[in-house]
């Protein structure tokens, strides 16, 4: 397995954790982006767009991003994408600090389908 799923989504951990390497932490949406940013500056390659989905940053609490486990020279395009993603996320205020569980679960589901759609694009898996 050459990639890791960086996520704060417990559904991704539970549903994909057995089959794939999942780096789960109970952190905020922004903290997931920052964690991935640090990996990119460490030379890891970004595999999925951090702003996947039309559910807006801070509207959904959940984010999952695919990152290549191997590292080499930092990719400036990846750095640009993650930095712009953080700037964009910061434009959106946190909307629902007290979210009903049912809505929370729906956000988890949508984030899971977004990352699954990316996994389908990796030739060696499917």
């Amino acid at each position: 397995m050459k990639f890791v799923i960086v996520t704060n989504n417990p559904r991704v951990r539970d549903e994909l954790g057995k089959e794939f390497e999942v780096d789960f932490a109970d952190i905020t949406y922004r903290e997931v982006l920052c964690k991935v940013r640090d990996m990119i500056y460490g030379g890891h390659k970004l595999l999925t767009h951090p702003l996947s989905g039309s559910v807006k940053p801070n509207e959904t609490p959940y984010k999952s991003i695919l990152v290549d486990k191997r590292w080499g020279k930092m990719d400036p395009q990846d750095a640009s994408i993650i930095e712009n993603s953080i700037i964009t996320a910061d434009k959106f205020s946190v909307k629902f600090p007290e979210m009903p569980d049912s809505v929370r679960e729906d956000f988890q589901l949508i984030d899971t389908t977004l990352i699954k759609s990316a996994l389908m694009s990796i030739p060696e898996i499917f």
Partner: peptide
Amino acid sequence: ENVYLADK
């Protein structure tokens, strides 16, 4: 407009 960067 896929999520996977190589697709983009």
